[in-house]
């Protein structure tokens, strides 16, 4: 009974198989789909030989299916066709990825070259700027050295001028400036305001020294002793100061830089009780304003001199 049933079932199945289209194995269905996808993907451009071989595998499976749809051979060939289609699809993707990588590497190399060129340009520019800076530094150093040389020369000239002054007059530093004291006995005859010939020689030296020092503003002060009337002493001191001013102007000191002032006996340097003291009070002082360039050079050396007795 069991065999009859089986035979009957097989017979029916056999008849049904002949009458209708056989169902392809799952592997063949997947192989068709996968091959279709692969032939529309990167493999169509990049893996033509592999695609062609996969086509051959699929064709063999299809022929086997036509000849013997349900055979193991058909299933095995379909299996192989599916794997070949999957493989060619993967190879297409691989080759496309390789191309993308190569393109990216080319782009990167180009970018690197571009950035390198920019870096070199920047470096070159920095080097040029550095050279310019170095040149500027060298020029500045040269200017500083020249300035130092000029200043040293000026200081030497000022020192020499001061030394020259000290030979003809007493020099001292006060708050109002450098005070050059010339004895009245040397400059003028008694009661006179005209310069003696010897006075002119001394004033020549004083004028040269003042010019060498670069004195900018001078005040010539005339002083007398206390003998005689105050008015006459005042007038005499002013006349003497003006004589000195006039002479200094004649020796090259600009008129606008020099003033004359008569102070009479109002500022004695000693009591008018002896002939020597009175002689010391009769004097002309040239006050060089503190702005004079010589002041800095004079100050350290002049201080002790300020205490000394003025020369006659």
């Amino acid at each position: 009974m069991k065999y009859i049933t089986l035979t009957t079932l097989l017979g029916i199945a056999s008849l049904t198989g002949c009458a209708s289209t056989p169902t392809p194995p799952r592997e063949l269905v997947e192989a068709r789909t996968t091959f279709q996808r692969a032939s529309q993907g990167p493999a169509a451009r990049l893996a033509l030989v592999d695609l062609h071989n996969a086509q051959g595998d699929l064709d063999r499976a299809e022929r086997s299916f036509t000849d013997d749809p349900s055979s193991d051979v058909t299933r095995d060939l379909s299996y192989v066709a599916l794997r070949r289609a999957q493989t060619v699809e993967a190879r297409g993707d691989t080759l496309q990825a390789d191309q993308e990588r190569e393109r990216a590497e080319r782009d990167r190399a180009a970018l690197t070259g571009q950035q390198l060129a920019q870096t070199q340009t920047a470096l070159q520019s920095s080097q040029e700027q550095l050279q310019n800076t170095q040149q500027t530094v060298v020029q500045t150093q040269e200017q500083l050295a020249a300035e130092r040389t000029r200043r040293e020369a000026a200081e030497r000239q000022a020192a020499a001028a001061l030394e020259s002054l000290r030979r003809v007059a007493a020099v001292r530093e006060e708050q109002r400036g450098t005070v050059i004291t010339l004895s009245g006995e040397v400059l003028f005859a008694t009661g006179e305001s005209a310069l003696l010939p010897i006075a002119q020689q001394r004033l020549d030296q004083v004028a040269r020294a003042l010019i060498d020092q670069g004195a900018r503003h001078l005040v010539v002060e005339g002083h007398t002793d206390s003998r005689g009337s105050a008015a006459s002493n005042q007038a005499l001191s002013l006349a003497r100061a003006q004589s000195v001013r006039t002479y200094l102007i004649s020796r090259g000191i600009p008129a606008g830089q020099i003033e004359a002032s008569g102070l009479g006996p109002s500022r004695p340097v000693a009591p008018n009780d002896t002939a020597e003291n009175r002689a010391n009070n009769r004097r002309v002082e040239i006050v060089v304003s503190p702005a004079a360039q010589v002041r800095a050079a004079v100050a350290p050396q002049a201080q002790p001199q300020a205490q000394a007795q003025p020369q006659r």
């Binding site: 794997r83 999957q86 493989t87 993967a90 190879r91 993707d93 691989t94 080759l95 990825a97 390789d98 993308e100 990588r101 990216a104 590497e105 990167r108």
Partner: peptide, 20 residues
């Protein structure tokens, strides 16, 4: 061969992504 192709595809895609 499929195993080999899949393995190479993964490596190639990783390399491409890294390069990009």
């Amino acid at each position: 061969e499929l195993a080999m192709a899949l393995s190479r595809r993964t490596a190639a895609m990783t390399a491409a992504q890294q390069a990009t």
